[in-house]
């Protein structure tokens, strides 16, 4: 069946044999966006987290049929080197990643958090950021999440000035 969805701002139509195929595999294999990772396939580790209509979704457990007509954002579309998302900028400033495998999922979950809670407390972070990182980058991640909140606030102020 054909499914249309907007991925990182571009309307895509994919032909999928099984509408229950996890969105993860459509993004990775059909659309060749490899930044979204497979970790467990059971929505337990969070490596596959991406945004569907700006909400964090664990894409290994999200049938592609539900994405019909929706807006999907992956790490590749969160920001780029010219215009990094505040989360990416903060991740760079705090030098967060080690092996890097879980990081896109964490960054997408953090982006979703900042959408909802622009200035998260440590408690907000503890509740909402529950992905698994084996290298143990949580310590730097927490710093980066606070920094991202600051960067986002600055960005909002600057943008409002420009307007």
């Amino acid at each position: 069946m054909e499914i249309s969805l907007t991925v990182n701002g571009i309307l895509k139509t994919v032909d999928i044999a099984d509408e229950n195929t996890p969105l993860l595999w459509v993004v990775r294999d059909t659309l060749d966006l490899k930044g979204t990772k497979f970790g467990c396939g059971k929505a337990a580790c969070g490596a596959c987290t991406l945004l569907v209509d700006d909400e964090a979704v664990r894409s290994c457990s999200y049938p592609v049929k539900f994405a019909e007509g929706k807006k999907v954002t992956t790490i590749e579309g969160l920001g780029d080197r010219e215009n990094p998302h505040p989360v990416q900028q903060a991740w760079i400033e705090e030098i967060v990643p080690q092996c890097g495998y879980c990081q896109p999922g964490f960054m997408m979950a953090t982006a979703a958090l900042l959408n909802k809670v622009p200035k998260p407390t440590d408690e907000d972070i503890d509740k909402n950021i529950i992905n698994v990182c084996r290298c143990g980058t949580y310590y730097r991640m927490r710093k980066a999440i606070h920094k991202a909140a600051e960067l986002q606030a600055e960005k909002v102020i600057n943008e409002s000035k420009e307007v």
């Binding site: 229950n20 929505a43 909400e55 979704v57 457990s61 999200y62 509740k127 529950i130």
Partner: peptide, 21 residues
């Protein structure tokens, strides 16, 4: 659930037979 990580981050409107969620 929580603001950004809610029930629907993992649970959708039907059982997922691939993941067991």
């Amino acid at each position: 659930g929580f603001e950004a990580t809610s029930c629907n981050t993992c649970h959708q409107s039907e059982n997922n037979l691939n993941s067991g969620v």
